[in-house]
């Protein structure tokens, strides 16, 4: 059967975080923040590499981040970093079979043990930590 007729959902389906609970949302935002951090890392290396052009070039580059837009960007980076790390630890432990529940006799209505409250709590805690870090970061960046 040709793959063309496969009714595969494709990237649009993969990147739709709305249908399968908060775990799927966490998967989606882990990807986005991972890609965001990668983009930041590349930008960061480019930015800091201006030091080889001397102190003036370096200072000029630094000024770019001293704008409201620069502050918003850095606040976002802080949030991405905190969420990605905290949720990444949850995912890594889960991948090792830790915290994903124990097999047992399935009982109606068949709630999946791997989608347990500990997993959901960890996702919410990751979101809360990211929000707190962003608030603190923004208050420092925008302060005085």
């Amino acid at each position: 059967m040709a793959e063309r007729l496969s009714n595969r959902e494709g990237i649009k389906g993969m990147a739709n975080p709305t249908r399968y609970g908060i775990e799927r949302f966490a998967y989606w935002i882990q990807r986005l923040t991972g890609l965001g951090l990668l983009a930041y890392l590349i930008g960061h290396i480019y930015e800091t590499s201006t030091i080889v052009n001397g102190k003036i070039a370096w200072n000029q580059m630094l000024e770019l981040t001293q704008t409201p837009q620069g502050h918003i960007l850095l606040t976002l980076v802080i949030g991405m970093c905190v969420f990605h790390t905290a949720n990444g630890i949850r995912v890594m432990l889960g991948h090792g079979g830790i915290g994903v529940g124990k097999p047992g006799q399935p009982e109606y209505p068949y709630k999946a043990a791997s989608l347990n409250y500990k997993q959901r709590l960890c996702i919410w805690v990751s979101i809360a930590l990211a929000a707190l870090a962003m608030m603190y970061g923004a208050s420092v960046l925008f302060g005085d």
């Binding site: 249908r19 399968y20 609970g21 775990e23 799927r24 998967y27 709630k111 999946a112 989608l115």
Partner: peptide, 13 residues
């Protein structure tokens, strides 16, 4: 990637 969507929809637990 442990997105859990499979377990979300499985009708048999």
């Amino acid at each position: 990637h442990f997105a859990g969507s499979c377990s979300h929809v499985c009708p048999k637990g």
